[in-house]
Every structure is written in structure tokens, then in C-alpha cells.
Amino acid sequence: MLEGKFEEASLLKKVVESIKDSVQLCNFVCSEHGITVQAVDDSRVLLVSLLIGNEVFSDYRCDRNITLGVDLKSFAKIIRCGGNDDYLTLIAEDSPDSVTLVFEDKNSDRISEYSLKLMEIDNEFLKIDDMDYDSVIKMPSIDFQKICRDLSTLSESLQILITKDSIKFMAEGETGNGSVILKPRTDIDKPEQSITVKLNNAVNSTFGLKYIADIVKGTSLSNQIVIKISNRTPALFEYKLQSGYLRFYLAPKFED
């Protein structure tokens, strides 16, 4: 049996809102360690990988592995019914047909209970080995979101160039071009404002901005985003959770 209680419903709300436009049907695999999701978008360009570690929950028990096949659009509708600050408990039997969501308002005795029918989802799994990346950058997630949104007004593609002392984001379009250059900086008082670059090799990679527009929906999950890039291989965009992560793997674009 699964019983996982979130101190605040807002965390799961944010997670679902962050991935529901990238993937619709996915298996939430629950184990004693927490809940994991891996799913690929229909175009097979973007992969979502989620771990909600058991330490995120104020109470958590899962005696044996349970898979919850969830339609995220329906899940999102139900989860919006609860308040952000409510306790949220997920409950499922060992071989469940449905998952129950219990919202408890902390300021009153109101308890709301919803159940979502589950689906049999036959999704394949992509094996992702640990890789040595050419470059790892860490920067404020909100800045990355703004840069991508600004440059998406000009182009469908975002070019990222990384050298040891700068990160350059570029977009070239029919109406004009744009670029934003960032330099590494350490902010001792506000570490979440820091920008770091670890470089093994200089990077020059290009990505579709429509996919990046989906990735940056994870911005509210973490102050910082970690971007790991190698030339000509998928990049990893990561928002760290208190225990766990939301990762997106995005295949690059190539020159014709």
C-alpha cells in the first residue's frame, strides 16, 4: 500500500504543472525510496525524469512497488481542487484501479477527497547512463526562463555557446537576432543568484525553443537550474528538489 503525505500540496501541483504539457500519459512508480516518473514526449525529442524522494514527504510508506498509470491532464484538474497550503496525501492499494488524493485544510476541519482512475500505460524505458558532459552550468532558474522567453520572440532555435568565462545564448530569426551573454559570478549573500561554469570542452549546441518553453515550466520548483551539455548529444536540464529532482533531457538540433 502507498500512503504519501505532502506537507503542502503546492509541491506536487508544481511538478504536475511542469510536466503535463510535455507528456500526457505516464507511470508514477512508487517504491520505498519515493516516486519516480520517466516519460518521453510524442516527438521523442524531450524526456522527463522525475524523482520525488521519500524525504520530501512528511509521512511516507510504500511496502511494495506500485505503479500508478496517470493521465496528467486529468490529474492536473483534480490537483487544482486543493489549496496550495493544504496537506495532500496520496493513497493507493497494492494493485490499484485508482489513486486517492486527500486534501486537508490546515486552518479548518475541511477535508476534500478525490479519486483518479488509473490507466494501463505500456511505456518503454530509455536507459540513460551517467555521462561526462563538456560543460555544466548553474544559474538562476528565473533568469534562464526570461532569456529563453525573450529569445523565443525572434527564433525557433536557441544556440548556447559556453567557454570558460562566458555563457552566450543566441537566437537568429527572419526579423532580427538577439543574444545574451552571462559571466560566472559568485554571490555570497544570495547564493541562488550565482552563476557557475564548469568546462571540459567549449560547447556550441542548438535546441528547439518550443521544447525549452516546456522545460522552463519547472522554474518554480527551484531557484537554480543546472544545465549539462555536450556537443551533439542530449542536454540535461535539472531542477533540484529538497530530495530528488525534475530532469529534462533534450535532443539537440544539427546543421543540415
Binding site: V40, S43, R44, V45, L46, L47, E124, F125, L126, K127, I128, S155, E156, S157, E172, T206, G208, T233, P234, Y249, A251, P252, K253, F254, E255, D256
Partner: peptide, 14 residues
């Protein structure tokens, strides 16, 4: 502006 790559090219399906 380039050809969009696919994840299947890089990751093994299991």
C-alpha cells in the same frame, strides 16, 4: 535552422 535530433539515437530503449 537545423535538423531536430531524436533521443532514440542516443539512448537505448529497454
Amino acid at each position: 535552422t537545423g535538423v531536430q535530433g531524436r533521443l532514440d539515437t542516443f539512448f537505448k530503449v529497454i
